[in-house]
Design a protein around this nucleic acid. Structure first.
Lengths: 191, 191
DNA sequence: CTATTCATTGAATTTATATTCAATAATATA
DNA sequence: TATATTATTGAATATAAATTCAATGAATAG
């Protein structure tokens, strides 16, 4: 009987999805609400019926992204090398198979790295600093001889930079072949 | 005798430099000309005395960037492995020691990957596709046994993604330790 | 020294974009 | 069916940012 309530939810999803695409391709500032509205075939006015502002829309996306990222990072941190292997594998699997997760991952990075992201949103990501979080694991791996020597922070940077870079590339160009996760791990693995 | 002519050149440089910083941190759209003007302590009006438009300013930067990138990529392509080693070393050296070159490198990537870049500028970068350019070298390296097996395009993606990711990280956070170039090469080196 | 050219500003203008709103159509409720 | 609620639009408004401009002062040339 209530066609509306579900229709409404669907449209919200459509908007979110279209906006996500545009945001990761163009960034927050360059994405016009008209673009979003066009992409889902609705008037700009209607879009504001669903979301109070462009910023709220962006916030909602980030909120959604935040509810998932645990799943991409392996939560078995007992063995460092295994952690990096499974995490990389997991993320790359998503990056090539599940565009949505990959896009979310990119959105998070965009918020963290791009000064143009709204402050309200940057606040939500306080304390989500993957790089420093994994430094400890790198050190543990160096102790038990599975990870190579070198500045742990630098190793962490290299690892995440590679993963992020690959995800970006695949998000823009989904048809390109996906690198193997083991290649990335070989950067930090003891030889 | 002509204080003006050199002063003018200096201010142009100042503007370019300030704009470069802002563009790579915020992107083209999010960077306001007021921001640029403020950063060099001049009125917005004056800025337009030096550059006709924000877009022209951006174009000029890209033009400058284009006149240099040969230098960061090694031009000795006789031995593939050596090419990747020297290129990575070169770029990372710049990324940590010479911020300007690193920033230019980032700007180029921004133009290529971000849909928000003005079309006029995207045109300038046609045919500057590092990834596919290096695919051939990867293949050669696989032939002579120095590079690992696997999809050459995917290997190329991994290599450049890592380099770009590291550069981004260092451009944003110049105080972080720089990863070793050999780590990156280990991604594609035959084990 | 005088006239000319250029640098500089702040305010005015234009353009682009976000946001609101009044009016209408569609759907739900009773 | 009559009434109320929600969806939808296109036009109005508000805001913000880019660009222009007229006026002023400083440097230069003759």
């Amino acid at each position: 009987m209530n066609k509306r309530i579900e229709q409404k939810e669907k449209r919200r999803q459509d908007i979110l999805s279209a906006a996500l695409d545009l945001f990761i391709h163009k960034g927050f500032a360059a994405t016009k609400v008209v673009d979003i509205a066009n992409k889902v075939n609705m008037s700009v006015g209607l879009l504001f019926h669903y979301f109070n502002s462009k910023e709220h829309l962006y916030e909602e996306l980030v909120r959604l992204g935040l509810s998932g990222p645990e799943s991409v990072m392996s939560n078995d941190k007992s063995d460092p090398l295994t952690f990096f292997e499974t995490t990389a594998k997991q993320i790359l699997k998503y990056a090539s198979k599940d565009p949505l997760t990959a896009k979310m991952f990119l959105l998070m990075k965009q918020v963290q790295y791009n000064d143009a992201a709204p402050d309200s949103v940057k606040l939500m990501l306080k304390g989500l600093d993957t790089i420093s979080q994994t430094v400890l694991l790198i050190e543990a791996g160096q102790q038990n001889g599975t990870l190579r020597e070198g500045n742990p922070m630098a190793l962490s940077i290299a690892y995440w930079a590679a993963i992020q870079g690959v995800c970006e590339e695949l998000a823009i160009n989904p048809d390109l072949p996906c690198p193997e996760s083991t290649w990335i791990v070989d950067m930090i693995r003891r030889r």
